[in-house]
Write a protein that binds this DNA or RNA. Sequence first.
DNA 1: CGCGCAATGCAGTATCTTTG
DNA 2: CAAAGATACTGCATTGCGCG
Length: 378
Amino acid sequence: MDDAQHVTQDAAEHYAVYVMAKTAEDLGAATTSHSEALWDGFVAYLAHRTWTHDVQFVELYPEYKANVDRQVPRFVDRLASKYPRSKFRFAIDEARFRIMGIKADFTIEFDTEQDPHFVSLKNYIGKSGITRPQVSSGTFLSFAAGFVFERRGVGTYDDPRVAGRTFSGSNKVERDGVLAYQGRTELIAPLQELDDIQQHIRNELLSMRMYDEATVKAVIQTIVPRGQAAMLNIFETLGMGAVRAKFLERAGLDATEDVLYFDAHNFVDSITNPKFSRLVDLVNDPATEFSISPVGQSLRFRFSANGQSILSVDVPLTINTNGAWHRPKQRYAGTQEKNDKGHRVQLQWGELRPYKSRELATSTNTYINLKATGIFDG
DNA sequence: CGCGCAATGCAGTATCTTTG
DNA sequence: CAAAGATACTGCATTGCGCG
């Protein structure tokens, strides 16, 4: 994803919240007249990048605005219909949410309710759209650590030894210290194994000056079973109940935060969509079975009842080469000048980037298989 | 040719290192 | 020793690619 796309996407969040307020106002369902202020925030965000709403925002990646225009008013219509006695106020304050450790992108305040709804927004323009949202990514270690410790921020966790202190999950001394303090020393070895796998792939691959796909694939094949085994070991130690709770929280399915996902064809949300609400209820229902099993390169997290699948979530284990080798779509002979993390370097096609290659890492992504749940059918 | 798995590169944040 | 710069790591949503 290039920079322009990223700016468009972020700006489209501001725009979406503006459209919510505007739609609510037009329906007579807004607590206060606040769409103008949200519009100003949207314009200011663009101005910061020397963009305007009628040029770059709509010309480079028009799909983001088109999705908002198509889906967001329908969402507000449904909100107003479902809660005819309430009025609404919408707000966007990412910095505050981040400080609060909340994943949400915007809030909806109901004047009939005390607390605001914190809502995570996804606006996908890709081919598979929101049928398979990706809710969390990371390294092998960060994925597992999210189950073992209380997450506070990016790669940081609560230090139970000192109130208010956090520690970095990649810091072995801190990590082991916390586990020893908690009397959970059996978790030290499998977490160390995940650390070791990261070190292993770097040892194996960073000496490879020219990219070789077969070599990378071979290394992936060796680390997948190691990663799966270590993670399953951790889950077994933690117990499936605890793992399930953490997993639902992580996937945005624990019914504490709301979601609004949309693409060109569909929108789904946890406030007005009965099918999605039903899905969330079911995965949170203790009567629903929960299992984790290795499937191919993935760990498959499955919720089911009477042998019938309710929801499956896949977490493939792979390597994130993170641009470690320079291989643009257009192959070329000789060398090209490349900006490598701020350093100008001359590189052949497929040659190791001396600086960027330090980001080579194990990789996990969490994909929710929403399509198979049937919530988009009919 | 659709689907699922894999790969990409940049942003955000925290922390470590160098510089004046 | 504070400020500035460099580095490391995670998060995101896309595109790419291989396989049936």
